[in-house]
Design a protein around this nucleic acid. Structure first.
Length: 164
DNA sequence: GCCAACGTTGGC
DNA sequence: GCCAACGTTGGC
């Protein structure tokens, strides 16, 4: 099956994601200092599949602080690499070591994420207060996924209405 | 610290 | 392939 030259070169529309990080491990300030971070430690297949199969360089990221005194969106980032194997899976000293993963067939893939700006914290209560965001995946009851898709409308609302 | 919700494991 | 038990997530 051949594809047109346009299909090979045309960028797909930018997509958007929300990525949870525990600020004790990596906060928006950590990302601001370092510029980019490898998104290590994801050990959930659905979240891995988003990074491995769906993300593209330049996709927008809502950087979310979780498991902390003030959970919420703390800033913006963007996907800045192709997927590649998470090195921590091969490191026996890492909390994220996976003895069952093989070098020649890595189980866990990640992307790098680049800092794109800090925002005043947008709390869960703030997010839930807006009808426009009622269907956000991250707000769904029982949701535990550390990476969730964000619709263009949700992205627009958050970045243009809640972040100014 | 509690606990709801969900994913993974492993016996059968 | 079922499903109970167990572990983890993550807000409160």
């Amino acid at each position: 099956m051949s594809r047109s030259p346009q299909a090979d070169t045309a960028a797909r529309a930018r997509q958007y994601w929300l990525m949870k990080s525990e600020p004790d491990e990596a906060s928006i300030d950590t990302l601001a200092e370092r510029g980019t971070l490898p998104w290590t430690g994801v050990r959930n297949y659905q979240a891995r599949n988003f990074m491995r199969d769906a993300m593209r360089i330049g996709d927008g990221v809502l950087f979310y602080h979780s498991s902390c005194p003030q959970p919420g969106i703390a800033g913006l980032a963007e996907v800045s690499s192709q997927p590649y194997p998470d090195p921590t899976q091969f490191d026996p000293k890492s909390d994220y070591y996976d003895a069952a993963s093989r070098q020649d067939e890595p189980r866990w893939m990640l992307v790098d994420v680049r800092f794109a700006g800090k925002s005043p914290l947008i709390s869960l209560a703030d997010l839930r207060a807006h009808e426009e965001l009622a269907d956000m995946v991250v707000l769904r009851r029982g949701n535990r996924l550390s990476i969730t898709p964000v619709t263009p409308a949700e992205w627009r609302f958050i970045t243009t209405r809640l972040m100014r």
